[in-house]
Amino acid sequence: MTASLSERLLLARLRNREEAAFNEVVRLHGDKVFNLVLRMVGNRSEAEDIAQEVFVTLFKSIDTFRGESQFTTWLLRIAANHSKNRIKYLSRRPTDREGLDAMPESVLADHGRGPMHGHVRAPDAVLESAQVDDMMQKAISTLAEDHRLLLVLRDIEELSYEEICEITGLPDGTVKSRLHRARMALKEYLEDKRE
């Protein structure tokens, strides 16, 4: 995978710990990383915490990036690993579960939609979209972690199969068959809820 000139220049500046270069990377990839983490853990404040940690890791370990993969896939792999670790950590603390379920993330904020784009949506439309969001997030959370990751990468982040293979280290066939099972499981769950 050959990086573009601008990407190589940016990387060189990152390796020199140039703060402006780091800011640019956060601006370029912040939303993608945040959304991936948010959909994996299903909780907004946890997601903010993990996504910040991903970029701190990037800043610390940019020297370990050797350019065998795309920079973006390398970054998203860090995000996926951090998310998995946090999910494992949270599942070992059963007393804290109420924190996970008590606050649907869409109730807390609705960035990137509606008012930010210059028009205020009608309250019932906001509510409806918040309900859809919560329902979908609950459905995603029922999936096994590795299935969830594939679904998030492909159907929410809209990455290519090539990129997903790079991020997960899985062969193409495994990605596709697991993704299919994840999609069908999600569909079954949602149809059950709709009935």
Binding site: N23, V26, N35, E48, Q52, V56, G112, S129, M136
Partner: peptide
Amino acid sequence: SLGSLKRKAPPTFLPDIQ
């Protein structure tokens, strides 16, 4: 429905990391 689940990082994201 999955396609509509994109959310942006909060506005304080960059300063928090810094």
